[in-house]
Design a binder for these strands. Structure first.
Lengths: 146, 146
DNA sequence: CAAAATCCCATGAGATACCATTAAGGTCCA
DNA sequence: TGGACCTTAATGGTATCTCATGGGATTTTG
């Protein structure tokens, strides 16, 4: 199955619209889907997306019984914030205001492929994260840990 | 089958009317239904709803859930308080006074999707719950439990 | 008949669809 | 090899429609 990979920076306009990078769109539309399933990351200041099919098994993970027994709280949290965002005629999606706020997006958004999913970051925030990640790797190599 | 997901805040007017979020309505009407089946949660200060079909074989729905009390007693309690609330021409339902009281609703209601069902909360109460849930998940991840 | 429940219509804001323009890359051909 | 041309992607703006909401009219019911 085709995967999400590569990094792309696109504009976020005043209406909250962003073009989904064409290669990512191809992955999703290649599965016959016309929308992106998106939710704020539980742990980072970014958004996570994929085709909706990626989230369909979430339903079975849900604390869906009639009892108060907690099941999968991660599934609960994701399901609560999950949104299905359809492509417009030009391959854009409209980001909900809360999503823009949670990920600190301004007028640009960086899409970064991660295999089965992708993330959307405020460009400078992602740059800082990548830099730190690279330094950790470099240090590990220097110490012979890798 | 389409699921309930996402979070939406709508107004409760003086007559006790609330608009059911359009995506939730679509799920229910997509099954050919024209009403919401709703009941107060047995365990939380909120209401739980779905299409009426979810409650038609209540006992079998609970078959895979552990609960401290016999299944049929839970079913009895839910059935006793279950109401079928039809959509008006604009997609609203009228919340019974007891339901509003039990869930502490004021002039706003938060709908939160949970897969096969959804819940209706007083906004600040739900916010507190979600915050606690996120903290538990974050702690679990930090400890490597997940 | 009075109170409450239901239906109906109006409206503004927000969401969606539609069209127009620019930018970038690639191809074909002389 | 240097363009002329074509295609796709991204972007900007405008028109249109849907949703959520409020208020009133009308019907039902006790």
């Amino acid at each position: 199955m085709k995967a999400f990979f590569g990094t792309f920076v696109n504009k976020v306009d005043a209406k909250g619209r962003v073009s989904v990078p064409a290669p990512f769109r191809a992955v999703i539309q290649g599965r016959g889907l016309q929308s992106v399933a998106l939710h704020p990351s539980l742990f980072d200041a970014c958004l996570e997306g994929a085709g909706f099919d990626r989230f369909e098994n979430l339903e079975s993970e849900m604390s869906d019984s009639f009892s108060p027994t907690p099941r999968n709280e991660i599934a609960d949290l994701i399901m609560a914030e999950l949104r299905e965002l359809p492509f417009d005629g030009e391959g854009r999606i409209v980001l909900p205001d809360e999503f823009i706020a949670k990920s600190n997006l301004k007028d640009q958004a960086t899409f970064i492929g991660q295999g089965r999913k992708f993330q959307i970051w405020e460009p400078t925030a992602l740059a800082a994260l990548m830099k730190a990640k690279l330094q950790r790797v470099a240090a590990a190599v220097k110490n012979g840990d890798a």
